[in-house]
Design a protein around this nucleic acid. Structure first.
Lengths: 124, 124
DNA sequence: ATCCTACAATAGACAATGTCTAAAGCAAGT
DNA sequence: ACTTGCTTTAGACATTGTCTATTGTAGGAT
């Protein structure tokens, strides 16, 4: 655990939003000006491997990082502004995939992304 | 409808797999050597706007294009090799998102991505 | 038939995001 | 203090996607 990694962890833990790697870097630089981009990418990768943070890819170009890794949840994305909310649908979509639709895969995970328009964008 | 657009449409229609833009370009060049990358991107964008083709973003870097736009379906992705299969789960996940979990969004669409390991990768 | 206009295609520059490498820094053990 | 090995750094590089200026082309007007 180095100063750099602590800063990255703090950034993610501090704001429970879904930041891009670049946004994480920008906030990390504010706390530790000499931190490099490569370190932020490396640390994010390690956190993902450790299961402390989730990678979320909506259809934007950049991946986003979700610090809420310990509670299963899905995402609701605004098609216009790209805002992301965590949501908790009922039911278990894994159970909705019949064996005949698994094609021999060992299915371990499911990711559900709802798309719509957020209240802000609807008002505008 | 120009020769270039026809070629792009043929490439997508010919193989019912999920190609990246670059793969589409490579196959289009094989049929029409002077086609440019920009034209492929433009045409893919138009096809998406027209609703003839779907954009699929798994967690890879590149978006993939799915010619099977007219039958609702979801995707099963191999975490190791990135292979994608179309699947048809039972049930309607849109109905599984209670009003209290919609946060004022107008939810119009849902995308389900199952992740696992395909038989090929499991054998290796 | 020729010209004009509008749209399409092209090549290549540019931008955004992510990955890799070589060098320097730093910490722990000897 | 020296060595060893891991971490960080800066920046080059790679990939994917977008934009722009130019050229090509098709169809109607003269």
């Amino acid at each position: 655990m180095t100063a750099q990694r602590r800063v990255v962890a703090e950034v993610l833990d501090g704001e429970h939003v879904h930041l891009t790697a670049d946004e994480v870097h920008a906030r990390a630089v504010a706390k530790l000006p000499e931190i490099s981009r490569a370190t932020v990418y490396n640390t994010l990768g390690e956190l993902v491997t450790l299961g402390e943070v989730l990678e979320v890819s909506t259809d934007q170009r950049a991946k986003r990082y979700d610090p809420n890794a310990h509670q299963p949840h899905h995402h609701l994305v605004c098609a216009q502004c790209g805002a992301i909310r965590d949501v908790h649908p009922v039911g278990n979509p894994l159970a909705d995939l019949p064996d005949t639709e698994r094609f021999g895969f060992t299915v371990s995970d499911v990711e559900v992304t709802y798309r719509g328009v957020c209240p802000n964008c609807a008002a505008a």
